[in-house]
Design a protein around this nucleic acid. Structure first.
Lengths: 198, 198
DNA sequence: GTCTATAAGGTGATAGAC
DNA sequence: GTCTATCACCTTATAGAC
C-alpha cells in the first residue's frame, strides 16, 4: 500500500530477515544490518523507530495473510477437503514470502514469544492447527495437525541437505501435510509405545 | 562421574536450561542465572569459565547419549524394526533429560548453529535421521524421517496446550514417530500437490 | 534521508579479598 | 566457593548538522 520511496525500507526488511534467519534476532545488531546496506545505524532509525519495529513489520505481513486463511476456513464445512485446502493456502502463503522468513519464525520461537506480534502469530498457528482436526480429536490427531502445519510451511529448509530443488522440497512437504490430515487410520502400528513413565 | 561437590554446578545447569528454553540463550544473561540461584555472577565463573561453557556442558551430555544410539544402530540390520527401536531409544533419551532441554534445542537452532557442540549435535541429528530411511529414499521418506525424529523428541511441548499428561503426550509422539517410519505407503493421497512453482 | 557524535545502560569477564 | 569492585566492550537509541 503506497510504497514509492527509494525502497530503502524494503531493503532493510529484506536484509534483516536474512540476518535474523541466519544468526537469530538477538545476535543480529543494527550495526550489521546497516553495514550490509552500506548506510549508518542512524539511517535505520529514520525508517523504523526501534529494532523491534523491523521484526514487527515482518510479522504483521504474515499475520495478515494467515488471518485471511483463517477467515476463509471458518466459513467452510469441517471436512477433510477443507483441511487440505487450508494447508494448500498456508503453504502457498509461506512460499510467497522471502525465503528465510519461515526459517526465522520456526527456529526462533523463543524470540517470537517475547514480541507482541510474535505471540499473536503463534496464536494464529494454534487456531489454524485446531482447524485441521475435529474439536474432540485424539492426541494423535492433534499432533498430526501440528506436524502438518509445520511440514507445509517449513519443508523447504527441513530438507535442505537433500538433493532436490526448492519446488520439489515444497511439494514433498505439502503432500505429506495433506496425508497427515487425511484422517486415515494409518498402518495401525501393532501395540507400540507403552507408557515408559519416569 | 564423580560429582560430589555442593551440587552448585548441577544447579547452575538446571536453572540455565530453564531460562535458555524460556527466553533463549542470548537473552538470558549470567546476571539472571545468578539471581535465580541467589549467588553473584562472579560465583558462576568458578564453575564455568564462560557462558558458552554452560550451554556446551548441556549439549555434551545429550551428545554422548545420541552417540550411543547411533553406534548401536550402525550394527543393526536396516529394517523397519531397527528404525523403530532407534526412535524408542531416542525418545527415552530425551525423556530422561531436564524437561526443557529439547525445547531449548528445538527452538534455538540458530543459536546452536553458532556453537561448536551445537553444530556437532545437529550433525548427529542428521545422521540419526538418515538411519531412519533407505539410502535411496524418496524426498517424502526423508521428510518423514526428519519429522519422526522431531516428534519422538519434542511431542511433549508440541502438545503443550492439549489436555493431557506429559506421559500421554510422549506416548502419542512416539506412536506417530513409529508410524512415520513404518514404510507403509500411507493413504496414497489422490493426486494432490502439483508444483505451484513461483 | 543520511550523516557524525554521543548518551545511557547492559554484557561477559577478571582481580583479589575473605 | 563465594564475594565486591571494576573493566572493556557493544548495544539500542537520540540530537542535531547537512
Amino acid at each position: 500500500m503506497g510504497e514509492r520511496r527509494s525502497g530503502t525500507r524494503e531493503r532493510i526488511q529484506t536484509v534483516a530477515v536474512e540476518l535474523f534467519a541466519e544468526h537469530g534476532y538477538d545476535k543480529t545488531s543494527l550495526r550489521q544490518i546497516a553495514e550490509r546496506l552500506d548506510v549508518t545505524k542512524a539511517a535505520l532509525y529514520y525508517h523504523f523507530n526501534t529494532k523491534e519495529d523491523i521484526v514487527v513489520s515482518l510479522f504483521d505481513d504474515l499475520l495478515a495473510g494467515i488471518d485471511e486463511i483463517v477467515t476463509w476456513g471458518t466459513d467452510q464445512p469441517q471436512t477433510v477437503e477443507t483441511r487440505q485446502e487450508l494447508l494448500r493456502r498456508y503453504g502457498r502463503l509461506t512460499r510467497e514470502r522471502p525465503k528465510n522468513m519461515m526459517r526465522f519464525i520456526q527456529e526462533s520461537k523463543t524470540t517470537m514469544q517475547e514480541l507482541a506480534p510474535g505471540e499473536k502469530l503463534q496464536c494464529r498457528f494454534r487456531t489454524l492447527s485446531a482447524m485441521l482436526h475435529a474439536p474432540d480429536a485424539s492426541l494423535a490427531e492433534q499432533l498430526k495437525s501440528t506436524l502438518a502445519l509445520i511440514t507445509a510451511g517449513a519443508s523447504v529448509f527441513m530438507l535442505k541437505d537433500a538433493d532436490a530443488t526448492d519446488d520439489e522440497r515444497y511439494d514433498a512437504g505439502l503432500e505429506l501435510a495433506l496425508e497427515l490430515v487425511s484422517g486415515e487410520p494409518g498402518p495401525t502400528p501393532r501395540k507400540t509405545a507403552q507408557s515408559t513413565a519416569r
